[in-house]
Design a protein around this nucleic acid. Structure first.
Lengths: 230, 230
DNA sequence: GACATCCGAATACCGACGGTATATGAATTC
DNA sequence: GAATTCATATACCGTCGGTATTCGGATGTC
Protein backbone atom coordinates (compact mmCIF):
# COMPACT_ATOMS: atom_id res chain seq x y z
CA UNK A 1 0.00 0.00 0.00
CA UNK A 2 3.06 2.22 0.08
CA UNK A 3 2.56 2.67 -3.66
CA UNK A 4 -0.72 2.98 -5.47
CA UNK A 5 -1.08 2.07 -9.13
CA UNK A 6 2.64 2.51 -9.68
CA UNK A 7 2.46 6.10 -8.48
CA UNK A 8 5.17 7.00 -6.00
CA UNK A 9 3.89 8.51 -2.77
CA UNK A 10 6.92 10.79 -2.52
CA UNK A 11 5.50 12.92 -5.31
CA UNK A 12 2.52 13.96 -3.23
CA UNK A 13 2.24 17.18 -1.29
CA UNK A 14 1.62 16.88 2.42
CA UNK A 15 -2.10 17.67 2.16
CA UNK A 16 -2.57 15.15 -0.66
CA UNK A 17 -0.65 12.55 1.28
CA UNK A 18 -2.83 13.09 4.31
CA UNK A 19 -5.99 12.83 2.23
CA UNK A 20 -4.78 9.62 0.63
CA UNK A 21 -3.94 8.15 4.04
CA UNK A 22 -7.43 9.02 5.27
CA UNK A 23 -9.03 7.34 2.29
CA UNK A 24 -6.85 4.26 2.63
CA UNK A 25 -7.83 3.98 6.28
CA UNK A 26 -11.54 4.44 5.65
CA UNK A 27 -11.41 1.83 2.88
CA UNK A 28 -9.58 -0.64 5.11
CA UNK A 29 -11.91 0.10 8.02
CA UNK A 30 -14.97 -0.53 5.87
CA UNK A 31 -13.61 -3.89 4.71
CA UNK A 32 -12.63 -5.03 8.19
CA UNK A 33 -15.67 -3.70 10.03
CA UNK A 34 -18.09 -5.28 7.58
CA UNK A 35 -16.14 -8.55 7.59
CA UNK A 36 -15.47 -8.98 11.33
CA UNK A 37 -17.56 -6.40 13.19
CA UNK A 38 -16.72 -3.32 15.23
CA UNK A 39 -15.43 -4.81 18.48
CA UNK A 40 -13.74 -7.79 16.82
CA UNK A 41 -11.69 -5.50 14.59
CA UNK A 42 -8.73 -3.83 16.25
CA UNK A 43 -7.36 -0.46 15.26
CA UNK A 44 -4.01 -2.14 14.64
CA UNK A 45 -5.58 -4.53 12.14
CA UNK A 46 -7.21 -1.71 10.20
CA UNK A 47 -3.98 0.27 10.12
CA UNK A 48 -2.01 -2.80 9.01
CA UNK A 49 -4.53 -3.62 6.28
CA UNK A 50 -4.15 -0.08 4.94
CA UNK A 51 -0.36 -0.31 5.16
CA UNK A 52 0.12 1.98 8.15
CA UNK A 53 0.33 1.74 11.91
CA UNK A 54 -2.00 2.85 14.68
CA UNK A 55 -0.31 6.25 14.74
CA UNK A 56 -1.78 7.05 11.32
CA UNK A 57 -5.27 6.24 12.54
CA UNK A 58 -5.11 8.41 15.65
CA UNK A 59 -3.55 11.26 13.72
CA UNK A 60 -6.51 11.25 11.29
CA UNK A 61 -9.37 10.19 13.57
CA UNK A 62 -10.11 11.01 17.16
CA UNK A 63 -11.22 7.50 18.10
CA UNK A 64 -12.19 4.12 16.73
CA UNK A 65 -15.78 5.37 16.72
CA UNK A 66 -14.80 8.44 14.72
CA UNK A 67 -13.29 6.15 12.11
CA UNK A 68 -16.47 4.09 12.02
CA UNK A 69 -18.52 7.26 11.54
CA UNK A 70 -16.37 8.13 8.51
CA UNK A 71 -17.32 4.77 7.00
CA UNK A 72 -20.97 5.20 7.97
CA UNK A 73 -21.18 8.74 6.60
CA UNK A 74 -19.75 7.67 3.27
CA UNK A 75 -22.15 4.75 2.96
CA UNK A 76 -25.11 6.89 4.04
CA UNK A 77 -24.22 9.56 1.47
CA UNK A 78 -24.05 6.99 -1.32
CA UNK A 79 -27.38 5.47 -0.29
CA UNK A 80 -28.99 8.91 -0.19
CA UNK A 81 -27.67 9.78 -3.63
CA UNK A 82 -29.01 6.51 -4.97
CA UNK A 83 -32.39 7.06 -3.33
CA UNK A 84 -32.71 10.66 -4.50
CA UNK A 85 -31.86 9.65 -8.03
CA UNK A 86 -34.31 6.74 -8.13
CA UNK A 87 -37.15 8.85 -6.75
CA UNK A 88 -36.37 11.85 -8.95
CA UNK A 89 -36.20 9.58 -12.01
CA UNK A 90 -39.26 7.46 -11.41
CA UNK A 91 -41.41 9.24 -8.82
CA UNK A 92 -42.17 7.99 -5.31
CA UNK A 93 -44.07 4.84 -6.31
CA UNK A 94 -41.72 3.37 -8.85
CA UNK A 95 -38.69 4.90 -7.10
CA UNK A 96 -39.37 3.08 -3.84
CA UNK A 97 -40.13 0.03 -5.94
CA UNK A 98 -36.71 0.13 -7.59
CA UNK A 99 -34.87 0.79 -4.35
CA UNK A 100 -36.65 -2.07 -2.67
CA UNK A 101 -35.73 -4.40 -5.53
CA UNK A 102 -32.10 -3.25 -5.46
CA UNK A 103 -31.93 -3.81 -1.70
CA UNK A 104 -33.36 -7.30 -2.17
CA UNK A 105 -30.75 -8.10 -4.79
CA UNK A 106 -27.92 -6.91 -2.51
CA UNK A 107 -29.36 -8.70 0.51
CA UNK A 108 -26.71 -11.33 1.24
CA UNK A 109 -23.82 -9.10 0.23
CA UNK A 110 -25.03 -6.47 2.69
CA UNK A 111 -25.27 -8.79 5.68
CA UNK A 112 -21.81 -7.85 6.91
CA UNK A 113 -22.63 -4.17 6.87
CA UNK A 114 -26.01 -4.80 8.46
CA UNK A 115 -24.38 -6.74 11.29
CA UNK A 116 -21.82 -4.05 12.09
CA UNK A 117 -24.48 -1.39 11.73
CA UNK A 118 -26.57 -3.07 14.44
CA UNK A 119 -23.50 -3.61 16.57
CA UNK A 120 -22.60 0.04 16.40
CA UNK A 121 -26.17 1.11 16.96
CA UNK A 122 -26.23 -0.83 20.23
CA UNK A 123 -22.86 0.72 21.06
CA UNK A 124 -24.17 4.24 20.39
CA UNK A 125 -27.18 3.67 22.66
CA UNK A 126 -24.78 3.18 25.58
CA UNK A 127 -22.40 6.04 24.74
CA UNK A 128 -24.08 9.47 24.84
CA UNK A 129 -21.01 11.11 23.30
CA UNK A 130 -21.66 9.19 20.07
CA UNK A 131 -25.41 8.83 20.17
CA UNK A 132 -26.30 12.22 18.71
CA UNK A 133 -23.96 11.80 15.76
CA UNK A 134 -25.33 8.34 15.07
CA UNK A 135 -28.91 9.58 15.25
CA UNK A 136 -28.07 12.49 12.94
CA UNK A 137 -26.65 10.27 10.18
CA UNK A 138 -29.37 7.69 10.65
CA UNK A 139 -32.02 10.39 10.43
CA UNK A 140 -30.48 12.13 7.43
CA UNK A 141 -30.27 8.81 5.59
CA UNK A 142 -34.05 8.56 5.86
CA UNK A 143 -34.78 11.97 4.41
CA UNK A 144 -35.18 10.82 0.80
CA UNK A 145 -37.71 8.27 2.02
CA UNK A 146 -39.59 10.84 4.08
CA UNK A 147 -39.79 12.99 0.95
CA UNK A 148 -41.07 10.03 -1.05
CA UNK A 149 -43.70 9.25 1.57
CA UNK A 150 -44.82 12.87 1.46
CA UNK A 151 -45.17 12.81 -2.31
CA UNK A 152 -46.92 9.46 -2.02
CA UNK A 153 -49.53 11.08 0.20
CA UNK A 154 -49.89 14.08 -2.08
CA UNK A 155 -50.38 11.98 -5.19
CA UNK A 156 -52.94 9.92 -3.29
CA UNK A 157 -54.64 13.09 -2.17
CA UNK A 158 -54.72 11.62 1.34
CA UNK A 159 -53.11 12.77 4.55
CA UNK A 160 -51.89 10.13 6.99
CA UNK A 161 -52.87 10.53 10.67
CA UNK A 162 -49.13 10.39 11.48
CA UNK A 163 -46.54 12.91 10.21
CA UNK A 164 -44.42 11.62 7.31
CA UNK A 165 -41.15 11.46 9.27
CA UNK A 166 -42.74 9.34 11.99
CA UNK A 167 -44.48 7.14 9.45
CA UNK A 168 -41.26 6.64 7.52
CA UNK A 169 -39.36 5.87 10.71
CA UNK A 170 -42.01 3.30 11.65
CA UNK A 171 -41.94 1.55 8.29
CA UNK A 172 -38.16 1.52 8.17
CA UNK A 173 -37.96 0.31 11.78
CA UNK A 174 -40.15 -2.55 10.71
CA UNK A 175 -37.82 -3.44 7.85
CA UNK A 176 -34.85 -3.13 10.16
CA UNK A 177 -36.39 -5.40 12.79
CA UNK A 178 -37.04 -8.02 10.16
CA UNK A 179 -33.46 -7.75 8.88
CA UNK A 180 -32.15 -8.20 12.39
CA UNK A 181 -34.30 -11.28 12.83
CA UNK A 182 -33.10 -12.66 9.53
CA UNK A 183 -29.45 -12.47 10.60
CA UNK A 184 -30.19 -14.78 13.53
CA UNK A 185 -32.95 -17.04 12.23
CA UNK A 186 -32.79 -16.75 8.42
CA UNK A 187 -35.41 -19.43 7.73
CA UNK A 188 -38.03 -17.56 9.70
CA UNK A 189 -38.04 -14.40 7.60
CA UNK A 190 -39.76 -14.38 4.27
CA UNK A 191 -38.01 -11.65 2.27
CA UNK A 192 -41.17 -10.73 0.37
CA UNK A 193 -43.16 -10.43 3.58
CA UNK A 194 -41.09 -7.47 4.72
CA UNK A 195 -41.78 -5.32 1.68
CA UNK A 196 -45.42 -6.40 1.55
CA UNK A 197 -45.96 -5.35 5.17
CA UNK A 198 -44.19 -2.06 4.44
CA UNK A 199 -46.55 -1.41 1.58
CA UNK A 200 -49.53 -2.45 3.67
CA UNK A 201 -48.72 0.02 6.42
CA UNK A 202 -48.10 2.83 3.98
CA UNK A 203 -51.37 2.16 2.23
CA UNK A 204 -53.33 1.75 5.43
CA UNK A 205 -52.11 5.07 6.74
CA UNK A 206 -53.38 6.85 3.66
CA UNK A 207 -56.86 5.32 3.56
CA UNK A 208 -58.35 6.62 6.77
CA UNK A 209 -56.78 4.07 9.12
CA UNK A 210 -59.07 1.32 10.40
CA UNK A 211 -62.05 3.61 10.69
CA UNK A 212 -63.84 2.38 7.55
CA UNK A 213 -63.77 -1.21 8.73
CA UNK A 214 -66.60 -2.82 10.67
CA UNK A 215 -66.11 -3.60 14.33
CA UNK A 216 -65.87 -7.38 13.89
CA UNK A 217 -62.72 -7.08 11.87
CA UNK A 218 -60.86 -4.92 14.34
CA UNK A 219 -58.13 -6.46 16.49
CA UNK A 220 -57.95 -6.36 20.24
CA UNK A 221 -55.09 -3.87 20.05
CA UNK A 222 -57.03 -1.37 18.03
CA UNK A 223 -60.16 -1.86 20.09
CA UNK A 224 -58.24 -1.22 23.28
CA UNK A 225 -56.80 1.99 21.85
CA UNK A 226 -60.25 3.24 20.92
CA UNK A 227 -61.63 2.34 24.31
CA UNK A 228 -58.86 4.20 26.10
CA UNK A 229 -59.63 7.36 24.11
CA UNK A 230 -63.29 7.32 25.15
CA UNK B 1 -23.03 -9.93 50.68
CA UNK B 2 -21.12 -12.43 52.79
CA UNK B 3 -24.26 -12.77 54.89
CA UNK B 4 -27.81 -12.76 53.71
CA UNK B 5 -30.66 -11.63 55.95
CA UNK B 6 -28.61 -12.44 59.04
CA UNK B 7 -28.17 -16.03 57.94
CA UNK B 8 -24.62 -17.28 58.27
CA UNK B 9 -23.19 -18.82 55.13
CA UNK B 10 -21.24 -21.38 57.18
CA UNK B 11 -24.49 -23.22 57.87
CA UNK B 12 -24.97 -24.10 54.24
CA UNK B 13 -23.96 -27.35 52.63
CA UNK B 14 -21.57 -27.15 49.70
CA UNK B 15 -24.28 -27.64 47.07
CA UNK B 16 -26.46 -24.96 48.68
CA UNK B 17 -23.51 -22.62 48.91
CA UNK B 18 -22.73 -23.11 45.24
CA UNK B 19 -26.36 -22.53 44.29
CA UNK B 20 -26.47 -19.35 46.35
CA UNK B 21 -23.28 -18.10 44.75
CA UNK B 22 -24.72 -18.73 41.32
CA UNK B 23 -27.88 -16.82 42.17
CA UNK B 24 -25.93 -13.93 43.66
CA UNK B 25 -23.85 -13.72 40.49
CA UNK B 26 -26.83 -13.89 38.14
CA UNK B 27 -28.60 -11.19 40.18
CA UNK B 28 -25.53 -8.94 40.11
CA UNK B 29 -24.99 -9.62 36.40
CA UNK B 30 -28.58 -8.69 35.62
CA UNK B 31 -28.27 -5.40 37.50
CA UNK B 32 -24.95 -4.46 35.92
CA UNK B 33 -25.71 -5.63 32.41
CA UNK B 34 -29.01 -3.79 32.30
CA UNK B 35 -27.48 -0.68 33.83
CA UNK B 36 -24.22 -0.43 31.83
CA UNK B 37 -24.43 -2.93 28.96
CA UNK B 38 -22.59 -6.12 28.11
CA UNK B 39 -19.22 -4.84 26.93
CA UNK B 40 -19.09 -1.95 29.38
CA UNK B 41 -19.54 -4.29 32.33
CA UNK B 42 -16.45 -6.24 33.36
CA UNK B 43 -16.56 -9.67 34.93
CA UNK B 44 -14.65 -8.21 37.87
CA UNK B 45 -17.35 -5.61 38.47
CA UNK B 46 -20.10 -8.23 38.47
CA UNK B 47 -18.16 -10.43 40.87
CA UNK B 48 -17.45 -7.48 43.16
CA UNK B 49 -21.10 -6.37 43.15
CA UNK B 50 -22.09 -9.88 44.23
CA UNK B 51 -19.38 -9.90 46.91
CA UNK B 52 -17.03 -12.36 45.21
CA UNK B 53 -14.08 -12.27 42.83
CA UNK B 54 -13.66 -13.31 39.23
CA UNK B 55 -12.77 -16.84 40.35
CA UNK B 56 -16.35 -17.40 41.52
CA UNK B 57 -17.68 -16.38 38.12
CA UNK B 58 -15.45 -18.68 36.12
CA UNK B 59 -16.05 -21.56 38.49
CA UNK B 60 -19.81 -21.23 37.91
CA UNK B 61 -19.96 -20.06 34.27
CA UNK B 62 -17.85 -20.98 31.28
CA UNK B 63 -17.62 -17.43 29.94
CA UNK B 64 -19.03 -13.93 30.24
CA UNK B 65 -21.53 -14.92 27.53
CA UNK B 66 -22.58 -17.98 29.52
CA UNK B 67 -23.34 -15.70 32.45
CA UNK B 68 -25.38 -13.41 30.23
CA UNK B 69 -27.32 -16.41 28.93
CA UNK B 70 -28.19 -17.32 32.52
CA UNK B 71 -29.70 -13.86 32.94
CA UNK B 72 -31.45 -14.03 29.58
CA UNK B 73 -32.87 -17.51 30.24
CA UNK B 74 -34.30 -16.44 33.57
CA UNK B 75 -35.92 -13.34 32.10
CA UNK B 76 -37.26 -15.29 29.12
CA UNK B 77 -38.75 -17.92 31.41
CA UNK B 78 -40.51 -15.29 33.50
CA UNK B 79 -41.86 -13.56 30.41
CA UNK B 80 -43.13 -16.87 29.03
CA UNK B 81 -44.85 -17.72 32.30
CA UNK B 82 -46.49 -14.32 32.33
CA UNK B 83 -47.58 -14.67 28.69
CA UNK B 84 -48.92 -18.19 29.13
CA UNK B 85 -50.89 -17.13 32.15
CA UNK B 86 -52.37 -14.04 30.51
CA UNK B 87 -53.42 -15.96 27.41
CA UNK B 88 -54.76 -18.95 29.38
CA UNK B 89 -56.74 -16.59 31.64
CA UNK B 90 -58.19 -14.27 29.04
CA UNK B 91 -57.83 -15.94 25.65
CA UNK B 92 -55.63 -14.76 22.78
CA UNK B 93 -57.40 -11.43 22.15
CA UNK B 94 -57.60 -10.07 25.65
CA UNK B 95 -54.39 -11.90 26.65
CA UNK B 96 -52.29 -10.12 24.02
CA UNK B 97 -54.12 -6.96 24.97
CA UNK B 98 -53.08 -7.27 28.62
CA UNK B 99 -49.49 -8.18 27.75
CA UNK B 100 -49.23 -5.22 25.43
CA UNK B 101 -50.55 -2.89 28.12
CA UNK B 102 -48.15 -4.32 30.69
CA UNK B 103 -45.22 -3.88 28.31
CA UNK B 104 -46.26 -0.29 27.68
CA UNK B 105 -46.41 0.39 31.41
CA UNK B 106 -42.91 -1.07 31.91
CA UNK B 107 -41.50 0.72 28.88
CA UNK B 108 -38.99 3.09 30.44
CA UNK B 109 -37.98 0.68 33.17
CA UNK B 110 -37.17 -1.92 30.52
CA UNK B 111 -34.94 0.31 28.42
CA UNK B 112 -31.79 -0.96 30.09
CA UNK B 113 -32.65 -4.55 29.40
CA UNK B 114 -33.70 -3.70 25.85
CA UNK B 115 -30.37 -2.01 25.22
CA UNK B 116 -28.27 -4.90 26.48
CA UNK B 117 -30.53 -7.36 24.68
CA UNK B 118 -29.80 -5.61 21.37
CA UNK B 119 -26.14 -5.38 22.21
CA UNK B 120 -25.91 -9.09 22.89
CA UNK B 121 -27.98 -9.91 19.83
CA UNK B 122 -25.47 -8.06 17.66
CA UNK B 123 -22.70 -9.86 19.52
CA UNK B 124 -24.31 -13.27 18.89
CA UNK B 125 -24.62 -12.53 15.16
CA UNK B 126 -20.82 -12.34 14.99
CA UNK B 127 -20.07 -15.34 17.20
CA UNK B 128 -21.37 -18.63 15.80
CA UNK B 129 -20.58 -20.45 19.06
CA UNK B 130 -23.25 -18.38 20.81
CA UNK B 131 -25.67 -17.74 17.98
CA UNK B 132 -27.58 -21.01 18.20
CA UNK B 133 -28.17 -20.67 21.92
CA UNK B 134 -29.36 -17.10 21.50
CA UNK B 135 -31.70 -18.09 18.67
CA UNK B 136 -33.06 -20.97 20.76
CA UNK B 137 -33.99 -18.77 23.73
CA UNK B 138 -35.27 -16.02 21.49
CA UNK B 139 -37.41 -18.52 19.58
CA UNK B 140 -38.73 -20.23 22.70
CA UNK B 141 -39.69 -16.88 24.18
CA UNK B 142 -42.00 -16.35 21.22
CA UNK B 143 -43.82 -19.67 21.54
CA UNK B 144 -46.67 -18.33 23.71
CA UNK B 145 -47.27 -15.64 21.13
CA UNK B 146 -47.19 -18.12 18.25
CA UNK B 147 -49.79 -20.16 20.13
CA UNK B 148 -51.91 -17.04 20.64
CA UNK B 149 -51.68 -16.14 16.95
CA UNK B 150 -52.80 -19.67 16.06
CA UNK B 151 -55.80 -19.44 18.37
CA UNK B 152 -56.51 -15.97 17.00
CA UNK B 153 -56.74 -17.46 13.52
CA UNK B 154 -58.89 -20.37 14.69
CA UNK B 155 -61.36 -18.14 16.51
CA UNK B 156 -61.55 -15.96 13.42
CA UNK B 157 -62.06 -19.03 11.27
CA UNK B 158 -59.44 -17.64 8.90
CA UNK B 159 -56.05 -18.98 7.90
CA UNK B 160 -53.27 -16.51 7.25
CA UNK B 161 -51.25 -16.94 4.04
CA UNK B 162 -48.12 -17.11 6.26
CA UNK B 163 -47.48 -19.79 8.91
CA UNK B 164 -48.09 -18.59 12.49
CA UNK B 165 -44.44 -18.78 13.57
CA UNK B 166 -43.35 -16.61 10.65
CA UNK B 167 -46.22 -14.20 11.17
CA UNK B 168 -45.44 -13.90 14.87
CA UNK B 169 -41.73 -13.39 14.14
CA UNK B 170 -42.62 -10.64 11.66
CA UNK B 171 -44.93 -8.80 14.06
CA UNK B 172 -42.48 -9.07 16.93
CA UNK B 173 -39.58 -8.00 14.70
CA UNK B 174 -41.63 -4.92 13.89
CA UNK B 175 -42.14 -4.14 17.57
CA UNK B 176 -38.45 -4.69 18.21
CA UNK B 177 -37.40 -2.45 15.35
CA UNK B 178 -39.58 0.32 16.72
CA UNK B 179 -38.20 -0.16 20.23
CA UNK B 180 -34.67 0.05 18.88
CA UNK B 181 -35.51 3.24 17.06
CA UNK B 182 -37.01 4.67 20.21
CA UNK B 183 -33.78 4.14 22.16
CA UNK B 184 -31.92 6.39 19.71
CA UNK B 185 -34.56 8.90 18.61
CA UNK B 186 -37.28 8.78 21.30
CA UNK B 187 -39.34 11.66 19.92
CA UNK B 188 -39.80 9.93 16.59
CA UNK B 189 -41.59 6.85 17.90
CA UNK B 190 -45.22 7.08 18.89
CA UNK B 191 -45.71 4.29 21.45
CA UNK B 192 -49.29 3.65 20.38
CA UNK B 193 -48.30 3.41 16.74
CA UNK B 194 -46.31 0.23 17.36
CA UNK B 195 -49.16 -1.76 18.86
CA UNK B 196 -51.62 -0.39 16.31
CA UNK B 197 -49.42 -1.52 13.43
CA UNK B 198 -49.02 -4.91 15.09
CA UNK B 199 -52.78 -5.30 15.31
CA UNK B 200 -53.18 -4.07 11.74
CA UNK B 201 -50.78 -6.67 10.37
CA UNK B 202 -52.37 -9.47 12.37
CA UNK B 203 -55.83 -8.49 11.20
CA UNK B 204 -54.79 -7.99 7.61
CA UNK B 205 -53.21 -11.43 7.47
CA UNK B 206 -56.49 -13.03 8.55
CA UNK B 207 -58.83 -11.22 6.16
CA UNK B 208 -57.53 -12.53 2.84
CA UNK B 209 -54.59 -10.11 2.58
CA UNK B 210 -55.05 -7.22 0.14
CA UNK B 211 -57.01 -9.30 -2.33
CA UNK B 212 -60.41 -7.88 -1.44
CA UNK B 213 -59.28 -4.31 -2.01
CA UNK B 214 -59.60 -2.53 -5.33
CA UNK B 215 -56.52 -1.84 -7.41
CA UNK B 216 -56.40 1.92 -6.73
CA UNK B 217 -55.69 1.36 -3.08
CA UNK B 218 -52.77 -0.99 -3.59
CA UNK B 219 -49.22 0.27 -3.05
CA UNK B 220 -46.38 0.03 -5.49
CA UNK B 221 -44.77 -2.67 -3.37
CA UNK B 222 -47.77 -4.94 -3.46
CA UNK B 223 -48.32 -4.28 -7.15
CA UNK B 224 -44.77 -5.26 -7.91
CA UNK B 225 -45.13 -8.50 -5.97
CA UNK B 226 -48.26 -9.42 -7.89
CA UNK B 227 -46.67 -8.56 -11.21
CA UNK B 228 -43.64 -10.72 -10.45
CA UNK B 229 -45.87 -13.71 -9.72
CA UNK B 230 -47.60 -13.51 -13.09
C1' DG C 1 -12.08 -37.05 65.84
C1' DA C 2 -8.16 -37.04 62.97
C1' DC C 3 -6.52 -37.45 58.57
C1' DA C 4 -6.84 -37.41 53.41
C1' DT C 5 -9.41 -35.82 49.72
C1' DC C 6 -12.11 -32.76 47.17
C1' DC C 7 -13.56 -28.65 45.19
C1' DG C 8 -15.37 -23.74 45.12
C1' DA C 9 -13.38 -19.50 45.27
C1' DA C 10 -9.24 -16.26 45.57
C1' DT C 11 -5.06 -14.93 43.58
C1' DA C 12 -1.58 -14.18 40.22
C1' DC C 13 -0.73 -13.95 35.79
C1' DC C 14 -1.25 -13.77 30.41
C1' DG C 15 -1.85 -11.62 25.71
C1' DA C 16 -4.67 -8.25 23.42
C1' DC C 17 -7.15 -4.19 23.38
C1' DG C 18 -8.01 1.25 22.85
C1' DG C 19 -5.65 5.11 23.65
C1' DT C 20 -1.57 8.43 24.68
C1' DA C 21 3.10 10.41 24.91
C1' DT C 22 7.08 10.65 22.64
C1' DA C 23 10.37 10.06 18.88
C1' DT C 24 11.55 10.40 13.98
C1' DG C 25 12.14 11.96 9.57
C1' DA C 26 10.43 14.11 5.49
C1' DA C 27 7.97 18.21 3.68
C1' DT C 28 7.72 23.11 4.24
C1' DT C 29 9.33 27.71 5.40
C1' DC C 30 12.54 31.30 5.92
C1' DG D 1 20.47 24.95 4.29
C1' DA D 2 19.00 25.45 8.85
C1' DA D 3 14.79 25.72 11.57
C1' DT D 4 10.29 24.35 12.04
C1' DT D 5 6.21 21.82 11.38
C1' DC D 6 3.59 17.86 11.33
C1' DA D 7 2.14 13.06 9.70
C1' DT D 8 3.32 8.82 11.07
C1' DA D 9 5.95 5.23 13.83
C1' DT D 10 7.21 3.54 18.21
C1' DA D 11 6.99 2.70 23.03
C1' DC D 12 4.19 2.50 26.67
C1' DC D 13 -0.18 2.58 29.87
C1' DG D 14 -4.30 0.68 32.30
C1' DT D 15 -7.97 -2.57 31.61
C1' DC D 16 -10.10 -6.37 29.72
C1' DG D 17 -11.54 -11.69 29.31
C1' DG D 18 -9.65 -15.78 30.39
C1' DT D 19 -6.45 -19.41 32.65
C1' DA D 20 -3.25 -21.72 35.91
C1' DT D 21 -2.38 -22.11 40.38
C1' DT D 22 -3.13 -21.78 45.26
C1' DC D 23 -5.81 -21.84 49.44
C1' DG D 24 -8.95 -23.31 52.91
C1' DG D 25 -13.12 -25.19 54.53
C1' DA D 26 -16.55 -28.92 53.70
C1' DT D 27 -16.72 -33.89 53.01
C1' DG D 28 -15.73 -38.96 53.28
C1' DT D 29 -13.38 -42.67 55.74
C1' DC D 30 -11.62 -45.25 59.50
Amino acid sequence: MREREGERRKRLTRAEQRERTREDLVDAAERRFTRDGFHATSVDQIAAEAGYTKGAVYSNFSSKEDLFFAVYERRAQRAMDEAHEAIADAGPFEGLNRLSQAAMRRRDADDGWLAVFFEFWAHAIRHPEHRARFAAIHGRAQEPFVAAVERFGEERGATAPVPPDKLTAAVMAMMIGLSLERLTRPALVDPELASELGGLVLEHMHTGGGEKRDADRTTAHVRRRRASRA
